[in-house]
């Protein structure tokens, strides 16, 4: 009887470990168990990512509808190529949708904001976003401001 209790407790201990691992995976590190096919991928070229990373949010009107899955460099265009996964539920993005890299707050993380266009055709898997706007790099802004000040004098 005593040995059985011990076995039960050790089993419980192991189960707690496994539950903790699953919690870590799903809740803390945000690994999603979503099966493939619930999302579709669109791509966009940006001149400058300015600190955008993998797994950054893609949002429309402030609501997260997807994530950045891959970032690479297009060697022909010398531009960054961002692949993003969009929820299948949001499958009605017009083909002239534009994407820009925005910052959450002054020092927050970078994310991609989409704004919809007016076309009646919708984007499908593998489509390119034509109209993109790069991240605003603070140093460039400041130097432009300083130069314009200097010219003005």
């Amino acid at each position: 009887m005593r040995m059985r209790n011990i076995e039960l407790m050790v089993g419980g201990f192991m189960v707690m470990g496994i539950i903790a691992l699953v919690l870590m995976a799903l809740r803390v590190s945000g690994l999603s168990m979503d099966a493939a096919g619930e999302t579709y991928t669109i791509k966009a070229r940006f001149e400058n990512l300015g600190g955008l990373t993998d797994r950054a949010k893609v949002s429309l009107a402030g609501v997260t509808i997807g994530r950045v899955t891959n970032i690479s460099l297009d060697e022909e265009w010398y531009a960054a190529v961002v692949e993003m996964e969009i929820d299948k539920s949001m499958s009605t993005l017009p083909i002239d949708t534009s994407a820009s890299i925005l910052t959450a707050g002054l020092l927050g993380e970078k994310y991609i904001g989409l704004s919809v266009g007016a076309e009646i055709d919708y984007m499908t898997d593998g489509d390119w976003v034509q109209d993109t706007q790069s991240a605003i790099v603070l140093e460039e802004l400041i130097s432009r401001f300083l130069f314009s000040q200097a010219e003005g004098e």
Binding site: L21, M24, A25, R27, V28, S29, G30, L31, R55, E109
Partner: peptide, 15 residues
Amino acid sequence: YWSNMANTVEFYDDV
């Protein structure tokens, strides 16, 4: 608290 955590913590790198 939770969503910033889920965005930054990587399963393989951190856990």
